[in-house]
Amino acid sequence: MGIKIISPGLATSVQDLGRPGYYHLGIPISGGMDRFALRAANHLVGNPEGSAVLEAVFLGPEIEFTTDAMVAVTGAELPLKVDGEPKEIWTSFSVKSGQTLSFEFLKAGARSYIAVSGGIDVPVVLGSRSTYGLGALGGHEGRNLQSGDKLEIGDSSITVDEGRQVPANLRRGLGSSAELRVVPGLYWHRITEDSQKYFFDDTWKVASEADRIGYRFQHGRALRFNERKQPFGAGSDPSNIVDSCYPYGSIQVPGGTEPIVLHRDAVSGGGYFMIGTVISADMDLIGQLQPNMDVKFIEVDIDTALAARMNRQSNMQRIREVV
């Protein structure tokens, strides 16, 4: 018994906290793009925080339940209904077998996390239930959900009450613009001083390539590179380097024009220089950015990055304590 997908939305997939440990083999970490929202959704229905949930982007799915369950939806402001009756986001609610969960138009943010008590019970592949679509690995048959798919729900031993809620002050605000903090990286010296300044001065816009692999940004000034003879093994464009590892959150700028921040399903290496890395505390936020939103990159040092990560962790800890 479980759930049946009536309509899948745009790109809905099964995700948990991810599949670390195989990046060196080219298998990305995958997992929810907004892991804070994913953890909170699981917490609201009494699941372990790393249970598998559904991640929907921009457009919600329509789901028929074939079992009774406690459900919570977190992340984007994507209004939801059960059999046509509105329900609150960031709040647990019970669904009876035979009822249908559906969504209205997106109001803010980008990705919603739909947790069901017991968790989505797909096979564990390399330690995770997350879907890696490009590699046809994990999740439900290694792909996004389609109409007619039936998913099993795990056994749930914990019963939580309806109406369990994450207070508004512990949710991350979803505005019409965003700031992403960046630690400059190993290749920072490759661009001119002017370009180093412009990268942080300019307002960038999220491009329509805003998916699980990476987010592309447009409309800032193109980077200029310091002259050098390209080393053996690097391509001829000045934005090329001898192949290197691409960290999660790294910002590559092919041709020096449009920065791309690599996210959960990214490739693990290649030959583009990286200007720096978005700090881990801000990676969840990227998962909630819509195309055409204004974004500023803010330069920070590693101490600031670590403090910000601590701050995010304490936010999650507060949810564990008060909810």
Binding site: L59, F105, L106, S208, P291, N292
Partner: peptide, 9 residues
């Protein structure tokens, strides 16, 4: 008729 999602039309 409204757009159900953000993007390029």
């Amino acid at each position: 008729i409204v757009s159900p999602l953000p993007g390029t039309f």
